Amino acid sequence: MSGNGNAAATAEENSPKMRVIRVGTRKSQLARIQTDSVVATLKASYPGLQFEIIAMSTTGDKILDTALSKIGEKSLFTKELEHALEKNEVDLVVHSLKDLPTVLPPGFTIGAICKRENPHDAVVFHPKFVGKTLETLPEKSVVGTSSLRRAAQLQRKFPHLEFRSIRGNLNTRLRKLDEQQEFSAIILATAGLQRMGWHNRVGQILHPEECMYAVGQGALGVEVRAKDQDILDLVGVLHDPETLLRCIAERAFLRHLEGGCSVPVAVHTAMKDGQLYLTGGVWSLDGSDSIQETMQATIHVPAQHEDGPEDDPQLVGITARNIPRGPQLAAQNLGISLANLLLSKGAKNILDVARQLNDAH
């Protein structure tokens, strides 16, 4: 009898209710805020589980004197976190989706994509230029951005401005803007500013005609071990179906173009009346040469937790077992079709030249 009692006690200790789920994140304040929001949602869904947040620095956090596009290494903000995932030191990792490459290392998958916040870019102005827009900034004003995508589009749109690289986390960039006289304004992701509670610093939100956004911008991705079915089931509740389908289309477009950090590629997606609209573009580094096109596809946005595919093969690095396969494939095909259209119009040449120029500098 006593033996059975011990077995029952052991089973209770090993039951999922007692389990601590370890969540990996970057150390920056924004990353911690984003991770806290994901953990809060998981806690609400699984009140019996405990969650421990483990923060670590990544290569991208450490190399702050070089433009991201020049470092010449993929997975700048993800490699150390993936290493911890691989060694079973954490069970899942919360990322900004735009930091996750469209091809993940073997053994990993994006197990959830959370509801997207505003994906557009924002302009934050130096205190002396508050009330201005990019259009009304004085001639030769210097605007800071760490992104080739932003610089290429904005140089084309605002030729009277000069664009220079600015690195560091959000706090560091804002301090550089406010305390030094080098920059009249800087460009940042609206979602990051909003998550930090800095709505009052948003001086201008850039519309798609001015600057399309990065693939996955404004959404959070939760990376897990691809074979860890328990954790895949656990994080599945975080999937937002519309965000998922938009981001599958965007990531398929980028992957098929073979774009990345070192080339200016941008997108804009919208879901309306059962249609998914995808606009994508590529630019030369100075913005003088560009190709942009829009395509659409009829896609039914499923309700969360309709029964999805059981075999769960990944699409552009994403596993969404609780979302039907048909809409996911339709979104992926839309991204591939748009990429093929741009490639047929000469996108590869623009991107190759951009890559060579970026590598040469």
Rank of each mutant, 00 (worst) to 15 (best):
residue 20 V to I: 10
residue 20 V to A: 09
residue 25 T to R: 08
residue 26 R to W: 00
residue 28 S to Q: 00
residue 28 S to V: 02
residue 29 Q to D: 12
residue 29 Q to Y: 08
residue 32 R to W: 09
residue 32 R to G: 11
residue 33 I to L: 11
residue 34 Q to F: 04
residue 34 Q to N: 09
residue 35 T to N: 04
residue 35 T to E: 00
residue 36 D to E: 11
residue 38 V to D: 03
residue 39 V to A: 12
residue 40 A to Q: 07
residue 42 L to A: 06
residue 47 P to M: 02
residue 47 P to Y: 07
residue 51 F to S: 06
residue 51 F to W: 10
residue 52 E to K: 07
residue 53 I to G: 05
residue 54 I to E: 14
residue 57 S to Y: 09
residue 59 T to Q: 13
residue 61 D to N: 01
residue 61 D to T: 02
residue 62 K to T: 01
residue 64 L to K: 13
residue 65 D to A: 07
residue 69 S to K: 14
residue 69 S to F: 09
residue 70 K to W: 09
residue 71 I to D: 07
residue 73 E to C: 07
residue 74 K to V: 04
residue 75 S to L: 11
residue 77 F to L: 03
residue 79 K to D: 10
residue 79 K to T: 10
residue 80 E to V: 07
residue 84 A to L: 07
residue 84 A to S: 10
residue 85 L to G: 01
residue 85 L to T: 06
residue 85 L to E: 03
residue 88 N to G: 09
residue 89 E to T: 10
residue 90 V to Q: 05
residue 92 L to R: 03
residue 93 V to H: 13
residue 96 S to Y: 03
residue 96 S to I: 01
residue 96 S to M: 05
residue 96 S to Q: 00
residue 97 L to G: 01
residue 99 D to R: 02
residue 100 L to N: 02
residue 101 P to D: 02
residue 102 T to Q: 07
residue 102 T to M: 07
residue 103 V to K: 13
residue 103 V to M: 12
residue 103 V to Q: 15
residue 103 V to T: 15
residue 103 V to F: 11
residue 104 L to F: 09
residue 105 P to W: 08
residue 105 P to A: 12
residue 108 F to K: 01
residue 109 T to R: 00
residue 110 I to E: 04
residue 110 I to L: 10
residue 111 G to Y: 02
residue 111 G to S: 07
residue 111 G to N: 02
residue 112 A to N: 00
residue 113 I to D: 04
residue 114 C to S: 12
residue 114 C to I: 13
residue 115 K to Q: 11
residue 115 K to E: 11
residue 118 N to L: 06
residue 118 N to W: 10
residue 120 H to L: 13
residue 121 D to R: 02
residue 122 A to Q: 05
residue 122 A to Y: 03
residue 123 V to A: 11
residue 123 V to N: 00
residue 124 V to K: 05
residue 127 P to S: 10
residue 128 K to P: 02
residue 130 V to K: 06
residue 130 V to I: 14
residue 130 V to M: 09
residue 130 V to H: 13
residue 132 K to F: 14
residue 133 T to L: 09
residue 133 T to G: 06
residue 133 T to F: 05
residue 133 T to N: 13
residue 134 L to M: 10
residue 134 L to N: 01
residue 135 E to D: 11
residue 137 L to I: 14
residue 137 L to R: 05
residue 138 P to K: 11
residue 138 P to E: 15
residue 139 E to I: 14
residue 139 E to T: 08
residue 140 K to N: 11
residue 140 K to V: 10
residue 141 S to N: 14
residue 141 S to G: 11
residue 142 V to Q: 06
residue 143 V to I: 12
residue 143 V to N: 03
residue 143 V to Q: 04
residue 143 V to L: 11
residue 143 V to W: 03
residue 144 G to A: 11
residue 145 T to N: 08
residue 146 S to G: 11
residue 146 S to L: 04
residue 147 S to Y: 01
residue 147 S to G: 00
residue 149 R to Q: 03
residue 149 R to H: 06
residue 150 R to F: 00
residue 151 A to D: 12
residue 151 A to Q: 15
residue 151 A to V: 10
residue 152 A to M: 09
residue 152 A to W: 10
residue 155 Q to G: 10
residue 156 R to P: 12
residue 156 R to H: 13
residue 156 R to Y: 06
residue 158 F to Q: 09
residue 160 H to K: 14
residue 160 H to R: 12
residue 161 L to I: 09
residue 162 E to A: 07
residue 163 F to P: 12
residue 163 F to I: 13
residue 164 R to L: 10
residue 165 S to Q: 12
residue 166 I to H: 09
residue 168 G to E: 02
residue 169 N to Q: 05
residue 171 N to K: 13
residue 174 L to N: 04
residue 174 L to D: 02
residue 175 R to S: 12
residue 175 R to V: 13
residue 176 K to N: 08
residue 179 E to W: 09
residue 180 Q to W: 06
residue 181 Q to A: 07
residue 184 S to T: 14
residue 186 I to Y: 03
residue 188 L to I: 03
residue 189 A to R: 02
residue 190 T to L: 13
residue 191 A to S: 07
residue 193 L to Y: 00
residue 193 L to K: 00
residue 197 G to H: 03
residue 199 H to G: 10
residue 201 R to L: 14
residue 201 R to F: 04
residue 203 G to V: 14
residue 203 G to F: 00
residue 204 Q to D: 04
residue 205 I to K: 14
residue 205 I to T: 10
residue 206 L to M: 14
residue 208 P to Q: 10
residue 212 M to F: 15
residue 212 M to K: 00
residue 212 M to S: 10
residue 213 Y to P: 08
residue 214 A to M: 14
residue 216 G to Y: 05
residue 216 G to W: 03
residue 218 G to D: 01
residue 218 G to P: 00
residue 219 A to G: 09
residue 220 L to A: 14
residue 220 L to W: 05
residue 222 V to R: 01
residue 223 E to V: 05
residue 223 E to N: 11
residue 225 R to C: 11
residue 228 D to L: 03
residue 229 Q to N: 13
residue 230 D to E: 14
residue 231 I to P: 01
residue 233 D to C: 11
residue 234 L to P: 02
residue 235 V to K: 01
residue 237 V to G: 05
residue 239 H to I: 09
residue 241 P to S: 14
residue 241 P to Y: 02
residue 243 T to I: 05
residue 244 L to I: 03
residue 245 L to I: 12
residue 246 R to G: 10
residue 251 R to V: 08
residue 251 R to C: 03
residue 251 R to G: 02
residue 253 F to T: 04
residue 253 F to L: 09
residue 254 L to M: 09
residue 256 H to D: 06
residue 256 H to N: 06
residue 258 E to V: 15
residue 261 C to M: 01
residue 268 H to K: 08
residue 268 H to L: 10
residue 269 T to K: 06
residue 269 T to E: 01
residue 270 A to M: 15
residue 272 K to L: 08
residue 273 D to Y: 11
residue 274 G to C: 04
residue 275 Q to F: 05
residue 275 Q to R: 14
residue 275 Q to H: 14
residue 276 L to V: 13
residue 278 L to N: 01
residue 282 V to T: 08
residue 282 V to H: 05
residue 283 W to C: 06
residue 285 L to M: 12
residue 285 L to D: 14
residue 285 L to E: 06
residue 286 D to G: 07
residue 286 D to C: 07
residue 287 G to C: 05
residue 289 D to I: 15
residue 289 D to P: 15
residue 291 I to S: 07
residue 292 Q to T: 10
residue 293 E to H: 13
residue 293 E to I: 09
residue 298 T to I: 05
residue 300 H to I: 10
residue 300 H to V: 14
residue 302 P to L: 11
residue 303 A to E: 10
residue 304 Q to D: 02
residue 305 H to N: 13
residue 307 D to V: 08
residue 307 D to R: 04
residue 312 D to T: 01
residue 315 L to G: 06
residue 319 T to G: 06
residue 319 T to P: 05
residue 321 R to A: 12
residue 321 R to W: 02
residue 324 P to Y: 07
residue 325 R to A: 09
residue 325 R to E: 11
residue 328 Q to S: 14
residue 329 L to M: 15
residue 329 L to I: 09
residue 332 Q to D: 07
residue 332 Q to F: 04
residue 335 G to D: 04
residue 338 L to Y: 00
residue 338 L to C: 08
residue 340 N to A: 04
residue 347 A to C: 05
residue 347 A to G: 03
residue 348 K to D: 13
residue 351 L to S: 07
residue 351 L to C: 15
residue 352 D to P: 14
residue 352 D to M: 09
residue 353 V to G: 07
residue 355 R to D: 15
residue 355 R to C: 00
residue 356 Q to E: 13
residue 358 N to A: 15
residue 360 A to T: 14
residue 360 A to Q: 01
